[in-house]
Design a binder for these strands. Structure first.
Lengths: 202, 202
DNA sequence: GGACTGACAGATTTCAATATCTGTCAGTCC
DNA sequence: GGACTGACAGATATTGAAATCTGTCAGTCC
């Protein structure tokens, strides 16, 4: 029978079916049809439809994680690295939203379907922010008592530039100005910041 | 005949109907029924259903605007004022969300229905933030080249603590820590911040 | 004997008929 | 004569019957 049915082939077919029909209409039967097998065979590799969708989503997010890793520049200042990293994430999401709105909407639905996927994604990216900030603390460019809490704060404060719920605002002609203003404020804060639970000013 | 039908009476009845049936089910016929008149009479005071809903929403937002005005303390530092103001807004929205989830959801829908209402609301509140920051600049507690842009940046950076799209995250046990971390970072930034379009550091 | 099929039960979705709602306006009532 | 009514047309929402989908599993095929 031609080739053996692999998990990878099912994932690729699922991605294609999602791209074509969207998250609401894509069915397991469609995926099986695209592969020329019965839908029972798909259930041999993935226990449920939700697990199949989650696997596709995770693959997509992992590609973002890898891409974001490559933005970091060892020789740049921490502030420049942070700004470039946040800008790259913003640009990538915004481009995805404007150039392939259906696909963006599809992944938006997939991510929100799962309880574990969003945490996985956020934790990974906040980890990258933490590494940038830690480098800044090491060179005394930044000051903070708690790198991880501060990284989370930077993530939260730039939320509207990466959270899909705000995608419609990304079309605003002044959105880049808003981004620059927020990042400048954050970078200024990173140069001298204490988490409130810690002792007061020096 | 009893009393003449007033716009105010219609607004109150509409609010009550919205509270009881929710935004999806509340109809103009329901409002008329609650007032003991025909629905044609309601259209004598409001041109469309959308206009009626918008009037109710605007009344509700105005109450928030008035309440937020009262938080400002002439004698406090700008940093304390800003923190207290943001905290009050966050607490109010969070309380509304947890104590009256249906009503909160109702107004969330009403606000998102209108194109002009959200801008009106945001502009008003950002204006209040700008006043706090301007006071801080006057006392040399804060530094900024553009008070309005910086106020907008503070608003944007605290977005997840007031935007209803993030309401579900407000139940997180660590949300107050996240809030404190973001506000501390912003306040630290306000003590020395330049918008990127302006000249470099002193 | 392990990968695959296809029929099945229960859950979910679709679709078209039916009911309700919005907005209008000629007419009623004090 | 100005506030209100109620019947109306077109738009929207509801409903329930029919179709489809999900997940299972006994059985087929190499």
């Amino acid at each position: 029978m031609a080739e053996a049915l692999t998990g990878e082939a099912i994932l690729a077919a699922t991605e294609e079916v999602l791209r074509r029909y969207g998250p609401a209409k894509a069915t397991v039967v469609d995926v099986a049809k695209a592969l020329g097998v019965s839908h029972g065979s798909v259930y041999r590799h993935f226990p449920t439809k939700a697990a199949l969708r989650e696997a596709v989503t995770r693959r997509w997010l992992d590609a973002i994680h890898v891409e974001m890793e490559s933005v970091l520049d060892e020789n740049a200042s921490a502030a420049d690295n942070l700004r470039a990293w946040l800008q790259h994430l913003f640009d990538r999401k915004r481009r995805s939203h404007t150039e392939e709105p259906e696909l963006f909407a599809t992944f938006r639905v997939l991510v929100s379907e799962s309880c574990t996927i969003p945490d996985y994604h956020v934790e990974h990216l906040v980890g990258q922010v933490a590494r940038i900030i830690r480098a800044g603390v090491d060179t005394q460019e930044f000051v903070t008592d708690d790198v991880n809490a501060t990284a989370k704060a930077v993530w939260d404060a730039t939320d509207m530039f990466h959270h899909p719920a705000h995608a419609q605002e990304w079309g605003d002609p002044h959105i880049q100005d808003a981004f620059d203003a927020v990042v400048s404020l954050l970078v200024a804060g990173l140069r001298y910041n204490r988490i409130p639970s810690a002792a007061g000013d020096a």
